[in-house]
Amino acid sequence: MANSKGKVRWHIAVFLAPAVLVYTAVMIYPLFNTLRLSLFTEIDQARVWVGLDNFRTLFGNAIWSDQFWNALGNNAWFFLIHMLVQNPIGVALAAILSSPKLRFSAFYRSAIFIPTILSFVIVGFAWKLILSPIWGIAPGMLDAIGLKFLYQPWLGKEEYALTTLSLVSVWQYVGIPMMLIYAALLSIPDEILEAGECDGITSMSAFWKIKLPLILPSIGIISILTFVANFNAFDLIYAAQGALAGPDFSTDILGTFMYRTFFGFQLQLGDPHMGSAIASAMFGIILVGVCIYLFGIQRRLRSYQF
């Protein structure tokens, strides 16, 4: 070691270079360029520096701010549904799958995970068909069990559309928390569970008192992944409801709002600068959320060494 002191260790730079270059080209540069773009506007074909004017318009002008808060509120609801439905179901499924008594667990695991690898276009289209009042199987199935009165054209009603789409998204992505938690549960050593058994902690209480505390860090990671994915979401809403996120903007989330503004829609011309301002606001929201999690929660979680 002594003779390597003072030498420039080129191999470190060489090995880091590919990843750094690719990441810079496809992530870091576009990110900062978007932030930069949000400080300009276009007047008579020329790009003009306007400082924070775009943000003043976005938050100060009722036409823009109403849409922004509507999208943010919808996004928060979208996230809440995922947190309340997707993650508990994911944990429950993982707990059931990791039970050694369950037969065909590999089959269930794959079956539940498959929607995750499907394209959002297929998922959006398939669910639109399932729920369609005309061709869909949902009204027929409800009719068969005498519950036809429960059927509503869910995707077309303001009060249900967002919740319906959130649940479709939950259906698609529930496999991810399930897999992560499943892996965490498998990594819990049997000795600990056996030691618990000696102390009289079995079955359900073993889950609540031993397994759950041990998988909390994984649940934390899943929560933050869900948060980032939900606030960046766009595809499912766009595939199912289009860029106007109907009915009456009730399914408009930040992603669709940004898309509409940035690229334009029908007669509305695209405005890359306002679009970038919205994208920057999204970036800020996600950054704040992740920071709260990292500094407020992650550091308080205790990790256990086996």
Binding site: S132, P133, I134, P153, W154, G156
Partner: peptide, 10 residues
């Protein structure tokens, strides 16, 4: 019935 969720191709 359900025209609220009826799409253009429908």
């Amino acid at each position: 019935d359900g025209f609220e969720a009826q799409t253009y191709p429908d």
